[in-house]
């Protein structure tokens, strides 16, 4: 469901249209569950965060001034629910380390990773289900291993395709911080894929 369809659904929800409630729950519960699982690290926590988020969403839905902003609005509530969950957890993941830009820069002589990324782009091999599944697993692992501050940004900006401004509002940081973290997150994922997949998946022609 794209942003326009979500906006239409949000309007239907506000006007009490039959079926809008269940469609909204089904769509956003899955989104929040996946985001929270990657942010909290536990499947059980993600299920609880999804329920707590949706509860807050329905309680406050009349406060959503602009239905076009329903996706960032829901994700802001989800982010806060994740934080609350983490604070209650005895096993909260460790604090955030910064990733330096230098550590992500490949050497020109090939040491420290290549300039090229010699892996298949799965958009070009839609018929190869096994490769697509492997790439999905590798992406999940690569994003999951990022420090939390980078993981949040790449999930909101690239996976959920929210804007820089929307992501900054959700995370309570400036747009410049979002840009810096997004770049480092992408570079870290790139380096990870390069190291793990080079030679495993060769460009399919």
């Amino acid at each position: 469901m794209d942003r326009a369809a979500e906006t239409a659904l949000a309007r239907q929800l506000l006007s009490g249209t039959t079926g809008a409630f269940d469609r909204f729950v089904q769509h956003f519960r899955s989104k929040i569950f996946n985001y929270s699982w990657l942010m909290c690290g536990q499947r059980e926590d993600a299920e609880e965060v999804a329920q707590e988020t949706l509860l807050r969403v329905f309680e406050r839905f009349a406060e959503l001034r602009d239905p076009e902003r329903v996706r960032p609005w829901v994700f802001r509530i989800a982010k806060n629910a994740c934080l609350t969950k983490r604070r209650r957890s005895l096993f909260a993941p460790s604090a955030n380390e910064e990733i330096s830009l230098d550590s992500l820069m490949p050497a020109r002589n090939g040491e420290g990773g290549a300039m090229k990324l010699e892996i298949a782009d799965w958009s070009h091999v839609p018929e190869d289900q096994a490769m697509r599944s492997q790439m999905q697993r590798e992406m999940r692992r690569a994003i999951g291993e990022l420090p939390e501050i980078y993981r949040a940004v790449i999930l909101l900006r690239d996976v959920e395709e929210l804007t820089t401004g929307e992501t900054a509002q959700i995370l309570d940081v400036t747009e410049d911080v979002v840009k810096t973290r997004l770049h480092r997150a992408r570079l870290a994922v790139r380096k990870d894929l390069d190291a793990r997949l080079r030679g495993v998946l060769v460009e399919a022609k």
Partner: peptide
Amino acid sequence: ESLKKTIALCRQYSPGEIPP
């Protein structure tokens, strides 16, 4: 080119875990 490809992979990544 390699960063473009990484971004494309991130955008195509759809976390498909189905909640209970």
